[in-house]
Design a binder for these strands. Structure first.
Lengths: 88, 88
DNA sequence: TAGTTAATTAGATAATTGTCTAAATAACTA
DNA sequence: TAGTTATTTAGACAATTATCTAATTAACTA
C-alpha cells in the first residue's frame, strides 16, 4: 500500500481531493482543472489510488474517481493524538 | 514559511513529533532515538521548525525542542473538511 | 472495420530530498 | 586559556519525485 503522507504532501494531489469532495469526476475533468498534462495528472491519480485516498471505476471509456475518506480519518486521529499533549 | 505537509511526509520527522508529545527534548536526546547521524536529525529538526511544528530554545549548550500544535490544528481542520463530503 | 476519444504506460530528465562526512560555531569546564 | 561537548553548517551524492513527450490500450461511433 502506498504512503498516505507522501500522497498528501503534493499540492496538486490535495487539490484533486478537494475537487472530489463536492462530486465524483472522471480523469479528463480532473485534468482540465490543472495547467498540467494528462499523463501527469494520471500519475497523481495513481498515487492517490495507491494510498487509498480515491477510488477509480471505469464507466465506458471514462474512469470516474471518487474520494475515499477512511484513511483520512486514520491520519486525523493520529494528528489529533499529537495535539493532546502530555497525556501519552 | 516551510511546507507543513512536506514536513509531515517523512516518517523520521513524524516520529520526532511523537517523541516530543510526552516531553520536550534536546537535539542530542532526539538524535539518540534514531539510527542516524546528528547532522541528519538536525536537518529534520530544522524542517520541522520551518514548518512551525516545533519550537527551539537554546538552554546552555543544548537546544531544547518542543512540540507546537497550532499548525497541526489547521491541517486537521482541512482534513476534517474533506471528510465532510458533499457539503462543499 | 477504421477512426476518434479517453486514459494509462513507458521512458527521459531536471529538481528535490535524505543522508553522509568534515568543518565550524557556541557554550561549558579544568 | 585550552580542551571538551552539543549542535549546526557546508558540501557531496544517491535516491526519489514531478513533469514532459511519445506510444499504447481500451471503448465508443460512423
Amino acid at each position: 500500500m502506498g504512503d498516505v503522507w507522501k500522497a498528501l504532501a503534493d499540492p496538486t494531489r490535495r487539490k484533486i481531493l478537494s475537487l472530489l469532495k463536492s462530486h465524483d469526476m472522471n480523469a479528463g475533468e480532473i485534468a482540465a482543472e490543472f495547467n498540467m498534462t494528462k499523463p501527469s495528472i494520471s500519475n497523481h491519480l495513481n498515487i492517490l489510488k495507491q494510498a487509498d485516498l480515491v477510488d477509480a471505476e471505469k464507466q465506458g471509456q471514462n474512469v470516474v474517481y471518487s474520494l475515499r475518506t477512511s484513511v483520512l480519518e486514520d491520519i486525523m486521529s493520529m494528528l489529533s493524538d499529537l495535539t493532546k499533549r502530555g497525556e501519552d
